[in-house]
């Protein structure tokens, strides 16, 4: 089924008020999460907090529209795939430091402190951790709210 049809299906998810508000707000949450991740080395925040915000924007989709819309946007398979890719990217960044000397060496030029593109590998590590944490928490919430439902309930 097309994703627009599932979104308009009135039997799924919550009421129309919740759906409209969350449709307006979800993109702002996503952008705020990206801001927290990308500016993690300059302002408070970083990969862990930003990753949880990214996961929350998808959790809002699950809560408001039901699990089907969220699965159509990103299925459980792709969520665990992003989880693994984030963890792998973090380890690979660590091993790339070996070309300069030791594990997790900050091998990229540090640049001017305080600018967005600075601090070598720290923004890259932040992005990898954010992808890992966000995808992992989204996957586990998807599993808790869809697969973890008691089988006697009828709305599966």
């Amino acid at each position: 089924m097309d994703i627009k049809e599932i979104t308009r299906d009135k039997s799924l998810g919550m009421t129309i008020i919740v759906k409209t508000i969350s449709r307006l707000i979800v993109s702002f949450i996503l952008v705020f999460g990206l801001y927290i991740v990308l500016y993690g080395h300059i302002t408070p925040g970083g990969g862990f907090a930003g990753g949880v915000i990214l996961a929350i924007s998808y959790v809002l989709l699950i809560l408001a529209f039901g699990g089907k819309v969220a699965v159509a946007k990103m299925s459980g398979f792709w969520a665990s795939m992003w989880d693994n890719l984030g963890a792998l990217a973090f380890v690979v960044i660590g091993f790339l430091g070996l070309i300069g000397g030791y594990f997790f060496l900050n091998f990229i030029n540090h640049g001017t402190p305080g600018k967005l593109i600075s601090a070598g590998i720290i923004p890259l590590c932040n992005i990898a951790i954010a992808v890992k944490v966000g995808a992992a928490l989204y996957a586990v919430f998807l599993a808790l709210s869809i697969y973890g439902r008691i089988s006697t309930e009828e709305d599966e």
Binding site: G40, H41, I42, T43, P44, G46, G47, F104, N106, H110, G111, P113, G114, S118, A119, G120, I121, I122, C125, N126
Partner: peptide, 15 residues
């Protein structure tokens, strides 16, 4: 000076 990160917590965590 050593990590380039202004936020000391980010410097400690990731460097």
């Amino acid at each position: 000076a050593e990590t380039g990160a202004v936020n000391a917590v980010a410097g400690v965590i990731l460097d």
